[in-house]
Amino acid sequence: MLNLLTEIFSYDFLTRAFLAGALISIVAALVGVTLVLKKSAMIGDGLSHTALSAFTIATALGFAPLWFSLPVVIITSFVILKLSTNRKFRGDAWIAVLAAGSLAIGTLTASLTTGINVDFTSFLFGSILAVSTQEIILSLIVAIVCILLYLFSFNRIFAITFDEEFARSIGIKTNLYSAIFSIICSVIIVLGMRLLGTLLISSLLIFPTLTAMQLSRTFRGVVFSSVIISLLAFAIGFVLSYALNAPTGASIVVVNLIFLLFAFISHQLLHKT
């Protein structure tokens, strides 16, 4: 085992991917708790499809994909936020429209310009070769911001997640928190997409929270366990993917799935007895 780890970390690109992935896993778990509990988890799916479209268009036009897609995804997240708070619209349906529309635009752009090539498939399924130092720095910044936000606003985040209306009525700036969450969520979708791909990144937001909810009865417990589970699943999935020569994104998601099933079954059994 030690030999395997030494071998993995002897490669620069693997060390970079591990660092970025671990940071993204922490942030995704933190933001994921609020998204899942507010029943907004599908936002991750919508944004990842938009990110794919933005990445493809940037590649076709010769722009830097990361810096082109970041503002596009952030703006989209604000649009989703606006739609989901407007009672006239059905937010979930619009997220589906956005996801399908973006994926279609991305696929069309790719096939009309560079073709469905390696870049496009790496956007879809992720690639550990794609993680740059720039992305590690960005992951580190967003992780620090997110951890500080949770440390110093934990009780407020809990209040908003549990009952946004009450939180607003006692003067908590719920719109500001929603905007910050949208930005953080957008950044981790764009960064995580490089590693896990469009099709799997949203699972990083959802699985750890669902698993943690089977294990803990308090909000604090769910947040804490979610981070631990997310990190553990990432690390195991990452090492497994190297050992088995399997795709990284899929390996991480499968480990997360096993954790969830195990926690769910244990929870059911414990509650029966």
């Binding site: 809990f158 939180a167 006692i170 009865r217 909000f219 604090r220």
Partner: peptide, 18 residues
């Protein structure tokens, strides 16, 4: 959400935040 993972104390405490 009736299934929200929180204790009575956690919820009651949030009234203080204002």
């Amino acid at each position: 959400d009736p299934n929200f993972p929180a204790t009575v104390e956690e919820i009651v405490s949030t009234g203080n935040l204002g």
